[in-house]
C-alpha cells in the first residue's frame, strides 16, 4: 500500500500518532509536531500560544473559534491541525494591519459590539470575511450571514451597526 505521509522521516511507535504541520499563521511560518488528534484550535492556542481564538463549544455550534484558512472563515474546533498543513491561517492576532487596527476592530469598540468579549475574536474574524464575501449590503444580510456566531451577551444590534459602518465606509 502506497500512501503519502506528511513527513518523510521514519516513524517510531509514538511518532505514528503525531503529525508535523507546516503552516503560515498571520504571515509567520510555523512548524508544529502535534498529536494527530489536535485540532487547529488547540494547536493555535496551546502550541502556538495564540489564545485570542476562543473555545466556546468545541462542537461547531457557536463560532467563537472562527479563523481564516486560505482566506475563508472556518471553525478551527472542527478542523484538524493536520488539515491546516500547507495552508495560510489568520487569527484575531493577525487581523490588524501594520498601520493599525482593522476598521472592524475600531467599529466594534465605537459601537460597543461586545460585552464580555469572549465571542468577539470569532465575530471579528467572521465579519472580516463577511465584508469580503460581499454580504454586508443590508442589515438583514449581515444578520443572516453573522448568525453562525453566537453572542450570549446579546450584542447583536451593535455588531450589525459596527459592520454596517465599515461596509459603508468601504463603498
Amino acid at each position: 500500500m502506497k500512501t503519502t505521509r506528511t513527513t518523510t522521516r521514519v516513524p517510531s511507535a509514538q511518532d505514528l500518532y503525531t503529525v508535523d504541520v507546516f503552516t503560515v499563521v498571520n504571515g509567520s511560518p510555523m512548524q508544529w509536531r502535534v498529536d494527530t488528534r489536535t485540532t487547529l484550535l488547540e494547536a493555535l492556542r496551546d502550541t502556538a500560544g495564540l489564545t485570542g481564538t476562543k473555545r466556546g463549544c468545541d462542537q461547531g455550534a457557536c463560532g467563537a473559534c472562527t479563523v481564516h484558512v486560505d482566506g475563508k472563515r472556518v471553525l478551527s474546533c472542527l478542523t484538524l491541525a493536520a488539515q491546516a498543513d500547507g495552508r495560510q491561517v489568520t487569527t484575531i492576532e493577525g487581523l490588524a494591519g501594520d498601520d493599525g487596527p482593522h476598521p472592524l476592530q475600531e467599529a466594534f469598540l465605537r459601537h460597543d459590539a461586545f460585552q464580555c468579549g469572549f465571542c468577539t475574536p470569532g465575530q471579528l474574524m467572521s465579519a472580516a470575511c463577511l465584508l469580503r464575501e460581499g454580504r454586508a449590503g443590508s442589515d438583514a444580510a449581515i444578520r443572516e450571514y453573522m448568525s453562525g456566531n453566537l453572542c450570549r451577551c446579546g450584542a447583536y444590534d451593535n455588531i450589525v451597526a459596527a459592520i454596517r459602518d465599515v461596509a459603508k465606509g468601504a463603498d
Binding site: G52, I92, T120
Partner: peptide, 21 residues
C-alpha cells in the same frame, strides 16, 4: 465613553481563565 478594556477584547489579548498556562 468606549469600554476602557475594549482594546484588549477586540485584539484577543484579554486573558480569560481558559487562556492561562
Amino acid at each position: 465613553i468606549d469600554r476602557v478594556e475594549g482594546p484588549h477584547k477586540v485584539t484577543g489579548t484579554a486573558p480569560y481563565a481558559s487562556d492561562v498556562t
